[in-house]
């Protein structure tokens, strides 16, 4: 009898201790989130008290050695790279997703899906390397001369082309998921009023899967926005507002990569670069939250 109660007591002690640990781990998820934000805000304060936010965001002069911190070139570069790579990647990704969800049959479907997964798994730095070997000479020696531009190959367009490859499998898998969640009846009902298969996709499926696809695009945009290694290898790293898509430029992330090492000893520069991190965090978090809220709201309205 006493043996049994000891055993029970031990089991309950384990239960008690483990639940404290799990609770701590549960709140840890929120803690990580909060601590990252707070740390970055705290270390950004020096530069934020010294300069106004508007000044930082709109000034075009970036010269940390002389305490000029204008993020305009990097912001323009980031928006250009994100915009161009989404403009190239998104249509290709959505069309590929339509192929996978609506056209492909096994075994092709399985094979192509695994290829898309493989593409998504390849590390960014490998894309950067292939970009250097293939895309840089392509842009520098063939594409730029066609447009009559002098280019060494590295620049906004080069980084964007490779980023569009990286973002594609990401959007494909989320879009395929949304399309496959739609009931077969939706396709049958639309076909039965005499729609062609493309009309079913265009008018009904893309609309019904719209919330999911829209959130995939926003999440994809967030990915490109925060991408670091590929732009750092391919954009040419010149902190000037780019004139054409062939110009070298800088993004918010590459500015961190390029300047952190050497200028880390200057406290204000340090703070300015941490502020870039904060800026990235805020924008990407906003995109992520927006994607999720939008999806939830639209789904309630369309009920698919």
């Amino acid at each position: 009898m006493s043996n049994e109660s000891t055993r029970l007591r031990r089991r309950l002690a384990v239960e008690g201790a483990s639940s404290v640990w799990f609770r701590a781990a549960g709140y840890f998820a929120l803690l990580v989130f909060g601590v990252i934000g707070a740390t970055l805000v705290w270390k950004s304060l020096p530069v934020l008290t010294e300069y106004s936010l508007v000044e930082l965001l709109t000034s075009a002069t970036w010269d940390p050695a002389r305490n000029s911190f204008g993020f305009m070139p990097a912001i323009v570069g980031t928006l250009a790279v994100s915009g161009i790579s989404m403009a190239i990647g998104a249509p290709i990704a959505i069309l590929t997703a339509i192929y996978l969800a609506e056209y492909a049959t096994d075994p092709w479907k399985t094979v192509i899906s695994s290829f898309v997964d493989a593409l998504a798994a390849i590390p960014g730095v490998v894309f950067g390397l292939v970009g250097l070997i293939v895309v840089v000479p392509f842009v520098g020696d063939y594409l730029a001369p066609v447009f009559g531009v002098d280019s060494a190959g590295q620049g906004i367009l080069t980084a964007s082309l490779v980023m569009s490859i990286i973002v594609t499998p990401f959007i494909v898998s989320l879009t395929v998921e949304s399309l496959e969640a739609l009931p077969l009846e939706l396709r049958e009902a639309t076909l039965s009023v005499g729609a062609t298969e493309w009309e079913v996709t265009k008018h009904v499926l893309l609309r019904a899967a719209g919330p999911g696809i829209l959130s995939a695009l926003l999440l994809g945009f967030g990915r490109v926005f925060g991408a670091t290694i590929v732009p750092a290898m391919l954009i040419g790293s010149q902190t000037l507002v780019p004139e054409t898509v062939f110009s070298p430029g800088q993004t918010l992330t590459t500015i961190i990569v390029n300047d952190f090492g050497e200028l880390m000893s200057l406290p204000l520069t340090q703070s300015a670069l941490i502020f870039v991190g904060l800026l990235l965090l805020v924008v990407v978090w906003l995109f992520n939250f927006a994607a999720m809220l939008l999806r939830r709201r639209l789904e309630r309205r369309w009920q698919y």
Binding site: F33, I36, R223, A227, T253, G277, L280, V284, N288
Partner: peptide, 9 residues
């Protein structure tokens, strides 16, 4: 959102 946070951050 943490998953979507850029690694550089």
């Amino acid at each position: 959102v943490l998953w979507g946070t850029p690694p550089i951050v």
